[in-house]
Amino acid sequence: MTKRRLFLELENCIGCRSCLAACTQCGGHEQRNRNYVYDVNPLVNRQTMPLMCLHCVDPACARSCPAQAIQIHETGAVLSALTEKCIGCQNCTIACPYGIPKFDEEQNLMYKCDLCIDRTKDDIPPMCASVCPSNTLQWLTEEEIEEKQQRHDLGNDKWVTSMPYLEGETNVKINLPGILEGTTKLF
């Protein structure tokens, strides 16, 4: 089975928030979305960008959890807190460098993106990537990601999928907006 990854092409985002809506519908998500869409410069233009758990290879959230409630799936996905283990200390929310985990005070429970593990463990794209109409969220093989890299490679170290512009190696890969790379997109 080909193993694919989530790939974010940030500047494609049109702010429709389909990914948020789709997230609520995933198995195990109990109608609550775990991802974010931000206005980049809200007072000036309508550019938006999505943000979700990047599924760190060495996840700060899991490292900081005293209860070992955050497990890492064999696919590399960093799962949401196990309901019976999470003791509600909220360390994970403070530790995550991107501010991803959400906390429900009433239920005394953390919840976060689990990369729709019931889908992605069988290589079905996560809900957000399945619905994204603008190709911002994509579900790609390593080769496809590699190829994207070539197409954007300007030979000036400006290609940045993930490292070193993130805080650590991640399983989700991200491109930088083309405008920062000094190139227009070649769709």
Binding site: T24, D39, V40, N41, P42, L43, M49, P97
Partner: peptide, 23 residues
């Protein structure tokens, strides 16, 4: 702040609450 890292624009310094994050 992370968005600002992605876009090069300091989103976190615009004093506006994050909008519509609940779908």
């Amino acid at each position: 702040y992370r968005i600002s890292k992605f876009s090069g624009f300091a989103t976190h310094e615009v004093p506006i609450k994050e909008a519509n994050q609940d779908a």
